[in-house]
Design a protein around this nucleic acid. Structure first.
Lengths: 356, 356
DNA sequence: TTCGTTTTTGTGTGCGCAAACATTATCTTT
DNA sequence: AAAGATAATGTTTGCGCACACAAAAACGAA
């Protein structure tokens, strides 16, 4: 492969013996072109490894792309607040370019609000969509409409089996369960009972959480840690006081040695119960750098957090869409983020680095 | 503050009643200008909150910036190999822009080679320099020369007290020692002796490593883990077989329960000794995702690694320089990376994510 | 005043590309 | 074979800026 650089459309045109417009037509698949010209242009393109100058490209283009981000209301939950902040970062990152990024917030606890907002998104005729498909069923219907309008979309946080996004950004849930198990295990000095807690805010996707549990259980099984018994409990839309009562019952009845909470919000809810009861010997592992979670890590109530990095997920999602639309750069179909282990000693380094 | 957008130089010129060239002179502080014109232009600039269009700016500029990266030879060490790969990534990231990034490799074990290469860098008259200042003394002399030529530089990996780079990129060494201690401690089932190993390839900077040890010791002290005794050993330029012999002596004599190795290469050297001796009950914590280290994590010989992310460090360093030169964007003076904890269960997620 | 200097301001071109616009070649149809 | 249609190709402009170049003021000495 020969090394050419700073090859311009003009150069390609010259090499192929055609005009710049013909090259442009090949590059953008627009207009008709003779087979002969096409071949010659392609040849020159491949020979030189032509890469368009992105700056000249965006400068020359008049078209403004519209990107819609459909995510839960950031005010309802700190986790989604961080997602939203990632989107804001992306907006300022790309404001120089020919893109206009608009956010659409839906109610995390209300699927009809998701439907309403998804309609609104469609009515705006965006060129690309980023979304967190919390509600599977409703999301699928939305995907169909996007497909019908051939609007590319990127999924993050939650994957959906039959969807065909240009990219999914998230984590390996199964493996994250294993990491949770690994870390919890290091904090268990002696055998006993462990609980996996699924604390939902709304009737969410079971898949999302059961994958984590699967990984969690498999870790103990694969390492032949048979003297630990894993119990699991679900709390659905449970009021805080009720949750507190039920959890205390479980803790004492089951003589729990450790708890793994599969949701970010569940972590500090659980920590709060443990803390208020003055219990000191229960190991606790949860998810995400929420304000409240951070507090309990400092207080040694939460031992480890697994960081899902919602900020970065959302940011990357927008970046992929922009690159796809502006530069026709196809993103990887699946991006699984590192399973970051947060402890009392390294948490500050995560909060300060600002690279999240 | 009124909201204007897409304000061009032309608009500013019109508002100030001058020509675009005058505005250009104000913006770039070049050429002489009358006080009156200056005031009027400044007024318009502030009123509109003018922001230059970066794309048009780089497209229009003819000047090519030269950036030099002065780093250890990647062939000598996998750690520095990863640094170099980060630089390569940066090169392809910025190849579209008016920058030319050139790498200069020096011999990790030979300070004269550093001097020679730093001279070569200067002779190229670069507009910016990225460097890993392995050799303190020599680096300081280099800084003086850079300062004399007013060439901005970014430091990474190793910080140097009196240097005045536009940015330093690295980690909090003290805190990283604490994280190492924290993780090692979780793997110590019973009290006993622990060793801190400093395995140098060359006479490097003691500061770099002793900061880690300080953090390591402080963790045990602050948590009143008095029943652990911490010993420290230095290996300087030690041949592998000799290292093996000496380490075995120490392990048996001191009845070591755990080992913390402060250098990336030291980790797998130590692991190799432990592994070959068939010792199973020593906890081991080290640094970085080197090929050999990864292998020993899978084999459970190394329990945890702290990732310094050399690839990302170097990449970011170049990006900061480019932004500084091309867009006059001043980077943060200090960027301390997250102290990533790598374990057997999450290591794959780090290797696969490709975001490093 | 006049001409040469210096200071200050203005005009024009090109960066690489997208896209509107303009032209030429190639068919059809009668 | 001429006229119209259509397919294929070519020319030009402008995006916002940097910068070379050109021009006009302002100043100064004779």
């Amino acid at each position: 492969m020969t090394e050419y650089k700073n090859i311009r459309i003009k150069d390609i045109a010259q090499m192929a013996g055609v005009s710049v417009a013909t090259v442009d037509r090949v590059l953008h698949k627009r207009g008709k072109i003779s087979e002969k010209a096409f071949q010659k242009v392609m040849e020159a393109l491949e020979k030189t490894g032509y890469k368009p100058n992105l700056m000249a490209s965006t400068l020359g283009a008049k078209k403004k792309y519209k990107i819609a981000a459909l995510v839960p209301n950031p005010l309802q939950d700190d986790y989604w607040n961080q997602s939203a902040s990632g989107i804001l970062n992306a907006i300022s990152e790309w404001e120089q370019y020919n893109v206009q990024i608009e956010t659409f917030y839906f109610n995390l606890y209300d699927r009809t609000s998701f439907i309403a907002m998804s309609r609104k998104v469609l009515s705006q005729r965006p060129d690309g969509v980023l979304l967190a498909p919390i509600f599977h069923q409703e999301a699928n219907e939305f995907f169909d409409e996007l497909k019908a309008s051939s609007i590319p979309y990127v999924l993050f946080n939650t994957n959906i089996p039959n969807a065909t996004p240009i990219s999914f950004i998230g984590q390996d849930l199964y493996q994250s369960g294993r990491v949770g198990a690994e870390m919890l295990h290091t904090k268990l000095s002696e055998p006993g009972n462990i609980a996996v807690l699924h604390v939902y805010e709304a009737i969410q996707n079971g898949v999302h959480l059961s994958e984590k549990e699967k990984g969690f259980r498999d870790f103990f099984r694969d390492n032949r840690l048979d003297d630990f018994t894993i119990l699991s409990y679900e709390f659905e839309n449970t009021h805080e006081s009720e949750f507190s009562r039920e959890l205390m019952t479980i803790i004492t009845r089951d003589k729990l040695k450790g708890i793994f909470v599969s949701t970010s919000k569940g972590a500090y809810l659980t920590a709060s119960v443990i803390d208020q009861a003055g219990i000191k010997d229960i190991a606790l592992v949860g998810y995400d750098l929420l304000k409240n979670n951070i507090h309990y890590v400092y207080d040694r109530v939460i031992n480890y957090l697994i960081n899902q990095n919602p900020r970065k997920q959302a940011f990357l999602g927008i970046s992929y869409l922009v690159n796809y639309l502006l530069f026709r750069k196809v993103p990887p179909a699946n991006v699984l983020f590192p399973l970051e282990v947060i402890s009392r000693e390294n948490i500050k380094s995560y909060l300060n680095s600002g690279l999240n």
